[in-house]
Design a binder for these strands. Sequence first.
DNA 1: CGTCATTGTCAACGGCATTGACAGACCCAT
DNA 2: ATGGGTCTGTCAATGCCGTTGACAATGACG
Lengths: 241, 241
Amino acid sequence: MKARVAQQAEQSTSKRRAALTRESILEAALRVCAPEGGGQLTFSRLGKELGADPTAVYRHFRDKDELVLALTELTVAEGVELARATLPDGPSGDWRGWLTVTAESIRASYLARPVVAVLAAARTTASPAETSSFEQLISVLHRAGLPVLEAAECCRQLVDLTLALTQYSAAFSALDPATQAKDEAAWAVKYAMLPESEYPLLHESTPRLTELFRDDTEVFRMILATFLDGVALRIERTRQG
Amino acid sequence: MKARVAQQAEQSTSKRRAALTRESILEAALRVCAPEGGGQLTFSRLGKELGADPTAVYRHFRDKDELVLALTELTVAEGVELARATLPDGPSGDWRGWLTVTAESIRASYLARPVVAVLAAARTTASPAETSSFEQLISVLHRAGLPVLEAAECCRQLVDLTLALTQYSAAFSALDPATQAKDEAAWAVKYAMLPESEYPLLHESTPRLTELFRDDTEVFRMILATFLDGVALRIERTRQG
DNA sequence: CGTCATTGTCAACGGCATTGACAGACCCAT
DNA sequence: ATGGGTCTGTCAATGCCGTTGACAATGACG
C-alpha cells in the first residue's frame, strides 16, 4: 500500500514536490559538519542551510541517528575511495604501504568532518564499500606471509586503531576553540612548572612533548608506524617457523 | 524525603552547613556513571541521587564541564593507583609488563564508568597523578635502552593509544542496549550473507571476526601486544646500532 | 544582636530532538 | 476534470537538558 512508486517515476522530468531529497540533505549536513561549518550538527542549523523548516528532514530520515549513520557511511565510502585512488589496481607486495594508505585515507575523510566522527562514536556501519576494502587488506597481508585468520585479526586491529585514534583527534578539534586553547594552555603551564629535580626525564622531554601536543597527525603516524613494526615482526616470525 | 548524609561537622576551618560537598557530589556522579547506573549523567539524575535539588550542584561546580573534568581526573588517578598497586615499587627490567599493566589499569578505570570516558572526549587533564606515572614510564623505557626523547615519544604514543581505544569501547558500551543489539545484529547479518565467491578470505574469517566483535577487551590486548612488539623492535635496533 | 557570606530551592529561559495536526501539491483512476 | 490518496513541507507543542537569577534559610563573626 505504502511505498508506492518506489523511485522510478520522478527523477526523469520535474520533481513533483521534492525540494528536499536524501542527497541534498546529506550534502547540506556535510557542509554543516565541515570544520569551518561551526561546531554542531543540529536540526535547526540543517534547516537553515537547506532553507527549509528543520522538521522537514524527518520526511527523509526517521531520526537523527539514521541521518548520522548515513553520514558515516558516506564518510567511510569516501575514505575507501580515496585509498583506492592512491593504491595500485593490481596486487602489491608493499603490504606496509597498503595498510598505511588505507588507514590515512579513512582518517583524512573523518577529519574533514570532525562532527560526524564524534557523532558516529562506536557505531558500526558495515557498508559495502568497507567490505571489499577489508577483503583486500586481508589479501595483502596473506600474500605477505600471514595465515588468513591472523591476517584478518591484524586488519581488525588496524581498523579499530585507526577509527579510535581518529575519533580521538576529531573530538578535540570539534571542541569550541576557546576550550581548546584553555586546555592547551593549562597543559603547557603545568609542564613548564615541572620541578626538574623530581621529574628529570619529563623535564628533558618537555619541548618534544609540547610539540607533539599540537600535532595529532604526527602522533598518529608514529603510532601507526610502531604498530606496523609489530605486524612486520609477526610476519617474519611466521615465515621463519 | 531529604536523604541527608550525616558526615559533616568535621574539618577544622570554617564549614557552614555543608549537606553537599565536592566529594559527595563526585561520589554520587560516579555512581550515576557506573555501567549499571543507567545511560546518562544529567543534573536531574544527579540531584535525585543526592536527594537534593539538581541546581544545588552549581554551588560546587561552575558548570557541567568542570564536573566532568573532576570526574576524569578522579578516574585517571584511580587507574594510576591501580597500576601502582600492581607494579613493583623499585625499578624493573620488565618494560613490557610495566607498560601493559599501566595501560590496562587506566583502561579498566575508564570502563568502570563508560559515561565519564565518553564525556571526557579528548580533554586533557594533566593531573598530578598522571605526571609521576608518566615519568616512570619514560624511565622504564630509557633503562630498557631507548634514548630519553624516544622513550618519551613512545609513552605519548602508548597513552594516546590507550585513551583512544578505551573511549572507543566506552562509547559503544554507553549506547543503550537496544541500539547495541541492533548494530550487532546488522553486522552479523551482513557478514553471514557475504558471497564466498567474491570475498573468500573474509568469508573464511567470519567466525573469528564475529567472535572479536563482542570482545573489545581482547582486541585491545591484541593491539597493545602488536604495538609493544613494535617498541621492542625499536629498542633492539637502538641497542645494535 | 545584626550583618553578611554561604548554600539549597524554585521558577524560568533558551536550545535541543521529536511528534501530531494541518495544508498544499502531485498522481491516478474514474 | 475531478476527487481520493499520498507525499512532503510547515507549524505549534512536548519534554529533556544545561544554565541563570531571585529568594530564603542557615550559620559565622564582630
